[in-house]
Amino acid sequence: MTVSVQAEDFDVAAEIAALSAGRNEVGAVATFLGLVRDVSGGSNVAAMTLEHYPGMTEKSLGEIVEQACSRWSLYGVRVIHRFGRLEPGDRIVFVGVAGAHRGEAFAACEFIMDYLKTRAPFWKLEETPEGACWVDARDSDDSAAARWEQGSR
């Protein structure tokens, strides 16, 4: 399966191995791993809860992967995003891309993360000493996604 939205943790090494298992045409696997940080905007974060929109989440991630596959010649893509309550150090998101060479693998991995940040319906609620606080979207995420639309990369 290409896309998984799940509460459970995942095995990074197993996911990376699966991207090239039995495929000797794969010359490069680029990955991104997102983790929960213990600080956000100057506040300590004890935990966060990720809410999502079941149904739309899977659909939007699938479309992002499809777009990446139409832009670059890729041999495999894997996206895992967790939801529910997570603590600092916990894994949140994994993106793995297999290609012939590093160029398309790096680019597609970054593209998927940039689009995921602005299009996949997830919301973070952080637990801080000041109380629970919804994370605000950042303009820098919008501009990171927008640069892929200008054909500059």
Binding site: Y53, M113, T118, R119, A120, P121, F122, W123, K124
Partner: peptide
């Protein structure tokens, strides 16, 4: 699917409203 204000609403649709997303 992400929608724009001008997109139609038809009987039977599922419409959702939410703040800008913050996953990843």
């Amino acid at each position: 699917r992400m929608a724009a204000p001008a997109d139609p609403v038809l009987p039977g649709d599922e419409i959702a409203f939410f703040p800008p997303v913050t996953g990843g």
